[in-house]
C-alpha cells in the first residue's frame, strides 16, 4: 500500500514539476500542428500509459475522446473556454466523471449532476478513455479493487476521519448538502467505493483534493468502510426521514403528528347536524 502511495506521489511530483508544464504545452502544440503522434515524448507519461494499460487502449481512448469529449475539452485535452484541461488529472478523474455519468456534461449548469452513463460509456470504454488521459500527463490512477474493499477497512477509524474531513459538506451520513451559487455536495449513497476513492484523490468540481500522502490509501479505505457500512445499515427507529436531521423531523411533527391530532380532536368534538 505504501508503495502505491509513493509511486503516485512521485508521479504527482513530476507532474507538478515546472518543466512538465512546458513539455505538456509543447506536446499540445505539436499535436495541433497536425501531427498525429501517439507516443508521448515525455518519459513519465509513457510510463503511465504502460502502467495503466496497453498502448491499444490509449489509441482507442483517444478516438473516444475525440468523439465525446473534445468539443469542450479541446482536441488534445488542452482545455477551452468551456471546460478545463485534462492534462494531468489522471485516470482516476476520468473514471470518476464518466462512470458516474457526470461527463459528458449535458448542459452548463453550476455543477454537472450525477446521471445515467452515456450509452457508449461501457466499463471498457471508460478504461480506454482513462488510459488515454493518463497518458497525457499522469495524475491519480484508478484504485485497485483491494484498495477500495470496505471489508478490509476499519469503519470506526474511518468514521473519525469522515467526521473530520467530509461531513461538513456531505452531511453526517453522506446525504449531501448545499454549497454556494447553486453548487452542492452530492449524496454519497449512489457512489461506488471506487468512485468515493477517486473523488477524494482527484477533487472533482468544487471538491477539494485529499491526496494520498495526507490521507493515506488505508485511511481512504477506512472511510469507504464507514460510508458503506452506515449507508447500508437499517434505521432502527423507523423511517430515516432522509437522514438529513431536524428539518424533516420538524416537518413530520407538524404535517403528520399535529394533523393526526387535529383530526382526532375534530372527531371527538364533531356534532351531527340534525336534519332541519
Amino acid at each position: 500500500m505504501i508503495g502505491t502511495g509513493i509511486s503516485v506521489n512521485s508521479i504527482t511530483a513530476r507532474r507538478r514539476h515546472p518543466l512538465a508544464r512546458v513539455a505538456v504545452v509543447a506536446l499540445a502544440l505539436g499535436l495541433l500542428g497536425g501531427g498525429y503522434a501517439l507516443t508521448a515524448p515525455n518519459g513519465s507519461t509513457a510510463d503511465a500509459a504502460i502502467a495503466s494499460g496497453k498502448a491499444d487502449d490509449v489509441a482507442q481512448g483517444k478516438s473516444l475522446f475525440v468523439a465525446h469529449c473534445a468539443s469542450c475539452h479541446g482536441l488534445n485535452a488542452e482545455g477551452t473556454k468551456k471546460a478545463p484541461t485534462l492534462i494531468g488529472v489522471g485516470a482516476a478523474a476520468v473514471n470518476f466523471q464518466v462512470s458516474s455519468g457526470r461527463m459528458p456534461a449535458a448542459d452548463a449548469g453550476p455543477q454537472a449532476p450525477r446521471k445515467p452513463r452515456a450509452e457508449w460509456a461501457t466499463d471498457q470504454a471508460v478504461d480506454q478513455l482513462a488510459a488515454y488521459v493518463q497518458s497525457l500527463g499522469g495524475g491519480p490512477t484508478v484504485p485497485s479493487a483491494e484498495q477500495v474493499d470496505p471489508a478490509k477497512g476499519d469503519p470506526a477509524k474511518g468514521g473519525e476521519l469522515f467526521r473530520a474531513n467530509c461531513i461538513q459538506c456531505h452531511n453526517f451520513v453522506g446525504a449531501g448538502g448545499a454549497l454556494t451559487y447553486g453548487k452542492y455536495a452530492p449524496p454519497l449513497n449512489p457512489a461506488t467505493p471506487t468512485q468515493i476513492y477517486e473523488a477524494m484523490a482527484t477533487g472533482p468540481q468544487a471538491m477539494p483534493v485529499f491526496n494520498d500522502s495526507t490521507i493515506t490509501p488505508e485511511q481512504k479505505r477506512d472511510m469507504i468502510a464507514y460510508i458503506t457500512h452506515v449507508r447500508s445499515q437499517v434505521d432502527p427507529g423507523g423511517s430515516g426521514l432522509g437522514r438529513i436531521g431536524p428539518v424533516t423531523e420538524g416537518l413530520v411533527a407538524w404535517v403528520v403528528g399535529l394533523s393526526l391530532l387535529i383530526l382526532a380532536s375534530i372527531w371527538i368534538t364533531a356534532k351531527k347536524r340534525r336534519a332541519a
Binding site: T12, N165, G203, V209, F210, N211, S213, T214, I215
Partner: peptide, 22 residues
Amino acid sequence: VVEGSGQPIRAADFNSPGGILS
C-alpha cells in the same frame, strides 16, 4: 497534525493544489 489520525504533516506531502486538511 491531521485531525482524526494525529499524523504530522510534511509540507512536501501536502502538495496538491485544491487540497484541504483539518
